[in-house]
Write a protein that binds this DNA or RNA. Structure first.
Length: 286
DNA sequence: AATTTGGGCAACCGCTCTGTA
DNA sequence: TTACAGAGCGGTTGCCCAAAT
């Protein structure tokens, strides 16, 4: 007994959008806005499409400020840095890249940047680590897709997705080897919280994939995040990123703890409650 | 030249979150 | 307090096209 579908999939058009449909949607949204109701929008706009499809098309393709392709080195570093810190929270990562969408960033990561990062990382692995790393970046059994995401390639915190706790528990720690910078430890979490089942104990430094400093430097570009970076309007997340980077070099645990505490909603945030996130960073997600 | 293979990306699916009655 | 509807998100699929054989 699932909830009713948002639309009758048999009667709405699916698949690629035609230029005429794009024009209809674009002109309607530009003239009337979304009205806060995507479900009703296609009917009003004269489109035979699901509201969700309209929303996706607008957000990912038709918005006037969208950029496609042409990622800069700086954007690469931002993506890598945030992915290593918060995992596959694409909407958050995309929000720090003006003109980029979560879908675009996600595709870019899955098809290009992940390989690029791994190519840099691989030669840096200690002798016994590659097996763990290799296993950690294999697509999960549930994902045979060539572009399927993996939640474990870079970030320990990615293990603690706010979504899908069941799936999280199904992912055995063996396939989700967390990453640590030079043996740095993740903050331990209280074990009493229900979401934190014994099936997935707090990550321990042992068994994880070590990232050495040179790899972080290489990947992120040491010292290249300017304070008050224009991308972030100065201070705020930009300076946090810079702090993040330096902490990643010196003490990854505090960085990960801060971001983890910030981005994990509800119980997961409480789980890390003893770690105070930077002021003003967590308004919308907890 | 024809076929196969793999990468890139748009779109869909299904779930959680959030607001509201 | 609860149930429902809609929005938002991350994961996955499938098509298209270029490179390789």
């Amino acid at each position: 007994m699932g909830r009713a579908p948002c639309c009758d999939k048999a009667s709405v058009k699916r698949g690629p959008w035609s230029p005429e449909e794009d024009d209809l949607l674009r002109s309607y949204v530009q003239n009337h806005g979304t009205g806060g109701n995507w479900i009703a929008l296609p009917h009003k706009a004269g489109l035979n499409r699901c509201g969700k499809s309209c929303r996706l098309r607008w957000l990912n393709y038709l918005r006037p400020d969208i950029k496609h392709g042409g990622y800069t080195e700086q954007e690469d570093r931002i993506i890598c840095s945030l992915y290593s810190s918060i995992g596959s929270r694409w909407s958050i990562i995309a929000s720090k890249l003006p003109g980029r969408t979560d879908n675009d960033v996600k595709n870019y990561w899955n098809t290009k940047l992940k390989k690029k990062a791994l190519a840099i990382q691989q030669p840096q692995q200690p002798a016994q680590a590659p097996q763990q790393c290799a296993s950690s970046v294999q697509p999960s059994p549930a994902s045979a897709s060539s572009s399927g995401g993996d939640a474990c390639s870079f970030g320990g915190p990615a293990m603690y997705s706010s979504h899908q706790p069941a799936a999280m528990h199904q992912q055995a720690p063996a396939t989700l080897a967390p990453l640590y910078v030079d043996g740095g430890a993740m903050p331990s979490a209280p074990s009493s919280l229900p979401e934190f089942s014994p099936a997935l104990p707090p990550p321990q430094p042992t068994g994880g994939v070590a990232i050495n400093k040179s790899w972080i430097n290489k990947l992120l570009g040491a010292g290249e995040f300017p304070i008050g970076d224009h991308l972030f309007g100065g201070g705020g997340f930009g300076s946090l990123l810079l702090q993040d980077h330096h902490r990643a070099i010196t003490s990854s645990s505090s960085l990960q703890a801060e971001l983890s505490a910030c981005y994990f909603p509800n119980a997961q945030a409480e789980m890390w409650a003893d770690v105070k996130p930077p002021a003003g960073l967590c308004h919308s997600l907890t």
